[in-house]
Structure formats: structure tokens, C-alpha cells
Amino acid sequence: MAERSPAAPRFAYKASRLKPLRAFCQVARLGSVSRAAEALYLSQPAVTLQLQALERELGVRLLERTGRRLLPTREGEVLYALARPLVEGIDGLGASFHEQLRGLDAGELDIAAGSSTILYLLPGLVEAFRERHPDVRLRLHNVTGAGGLDLLRSDAVDFAVGSMLEVPADLDYAPVYNFEPMLIAPPGHPLADKPELRLQDLSPYGLILPPQRLTTYRLVDLVFQRNQVPYTVALEVGGWEVIKQYVAMGMGISIVTAICLTEADRARLAVRSLSAYFPSRSYGVVMRKGKYLSPQARAFVALIRPDLFAPRDHDQSGHSAR
């Protein structure tokens, strides 16, 4: 005699788990089948069937009458704690979805960045973002160093765009762009056409550098010290535009990152690569670990690095492909 296959389990009333869970949550909340039926626009017998189906499926009693109210049993309390966020999430899915869509075209976005990033890297990105999301109020916070980190850690900004040499443990840094270190000198300078440019060749000429508190100054000093090459700082001044102007006027030479050099600059200055001695500088997105990014923040980051929020590919074994 052929062995009978086990009967398929009978689940919720009319083959839906959501309906019995929704009915149970309403009864647990309101304490009455009749009030739950009114809230769900169902008949009382329909709600009763939903509850009976759920109790059959789980094999426990979920509700008990205390006076005129129906209250969850101990097992019912456990189920209510589990089911309520699920039911509310499903019931609110449509509204949440449309709210998220509206969030792409409205709201506020705060980005921290240094002067060079705001001046040279962000204009095209800001223009593209404004075209796509004209209703978002965008604020660029011009900060440097510790000031930007403070804004990130206090959630005063959504994220930062800039360069980081050392990444603190509480932050994530996703580099996107790389820029070479460049020597700039006035036209006709002895270093402009020197066939082989060595670090020692810069030693006789005064450097125009940003203030000592900034990363660029510290990096220049580190490279010269490691190579045991003396150097002289002729002038400290903030802002790449000022530095380029002073170099063009013949007040000294400078070491800059290629991010700040435009076609017009290359026409009025002598520009030479120093990649043999100085590291390239990366620029990218800096975020506080664990921070939730708003839809408008994610939209801006996607312009910089489209793959940052893309789901990873998985191989057939279920492991992420690297």
C-alpha cells in the first residue's frame, strides 16, 4: 500500500498570513472583535475566523477575555510584539514609498568640504544635482581639518567630500578621484624646462605654501625631511587661487595638487609633475559609520560614486564576488 504523503500544513484563513496577523493586532490593540472589525472594514465573523485560523496554525491560545475586553495571553503578547511592526510596515508601505520618492525632490542636504573641493571639484556635481533635484535646499559648509570632522560626528552635515590621509576608526572614506602633485613656477623660471627635475633642484627657491596647520604644508615638510633636502618657505598664504597668483607674479614657486590647476593656469604657469617624490592625493566621500543617509544625500553621493550603494554581485555559492 502506497505510503501517504504528509498533509500540507493549513495556514491562515483564505491562504493569507497577513490578514490573520492584522486582525489579531487590531483585536489586541482595541480589546474587542467588533471594534477590530470596524477598523478593518470586515464583519465580526470574518475577524473571528482569522483569529481561529491563526491559533490553529500556531497551536496556542492567543487571546483571553478579561471582563469586557479581550487581552493577549502570554503567547499573544510575544506574537503581538513580533507582528505589530511587520503589519504596520506592510500597511504603511505605500505611504512610505511615496514619501521616499518625495524626499528625492525636497528636503535639505548639508555637505562639508574644503575650499579647494568646493571651488574645483564640486561645481559640476552641484550643477548636475540641482538640475535633477531643484527643490532640495543644498548647503556647502566650507571647513578644513578638524572642523569638518566635528560636523560629521555631530551630524551637522550629511557627509563630507575631500581628501583624507588618515581615516579615523569612526569614519568611512570612499576615495574616488586622484590628483598628481605638481610644481608650479612663473614662466621662464629655471625649473620650467629643466630636463630632469630632482627634489634638490627646488632647494634654492622660496616656496609659497598654505598655512602650517593644513595637511599640504605638513606633507611638503615631511617629504623634504625624509629626503634630507633643505627648503625655504618664502610666504605662507591661504587659498590656492592666491598662491597661483603670487607664483605667476614671480614671488616664488609652489607645490600644489593638480585638482586646483585649470587650463588657464597651465597657460600662465610652468607646471611640472612631482609624482616621483610626493604621493598623489585622493578625494572622495567621508561619512560617519552607521549613519543613515537621506534620499537626497544618497542621490548626491551617487553622482560622485554610483557603485557605492549598489548591491554586490554574488556567485553561485552565495559569497560576494570580489
Rank of each mutant, 00 (worst) to 15 (best):
L18T: 03
K19G: 09
R22Y: 01
R22S: 03
V27A: 09
A36I: 02
A37N: 00
S43V: 09
Q44S: 15
G59W: 00
E64N: 09
L71K: 14
L71F: 10
T73C: 10
L79W: 03
Y80M: 14
G92C: 11
L93G: 05
A95D: 13
H98F: 14
G103D: 02
A106H: 12
I111W: 03
I111V: 15
I111A: 07
S115K: 14
S115W: 09
L119P: 10
F129Q: 00
R137E: 07
V157A: 01
E166R: 11
D170W: 13
V176L: 09
P181V: 02
D193Q: 10
D193C: 10
R198F: 10
Q200S: 10
D201F: 04
P204I: 00
G206Y: 04
L214Y: 12
L219D: 06
L222V: 06
V223S: 00
V229F: 05
V233E: 04
V242Y: 09
V242W: 13
M251T: 02
A258S: 13
L261A: 01
T262D: 12
D265E: 04
D265Y: 02
A267G: 07
S273P: 14
P279N: 02
R281C: 12
R288V: 02
K289G: 12
S294W: 01
P295F: 01
A297I: 02
A302C: 05
L303V: 02
P306R: 13
S320Y: 05
A321V: 08
A321L: 14
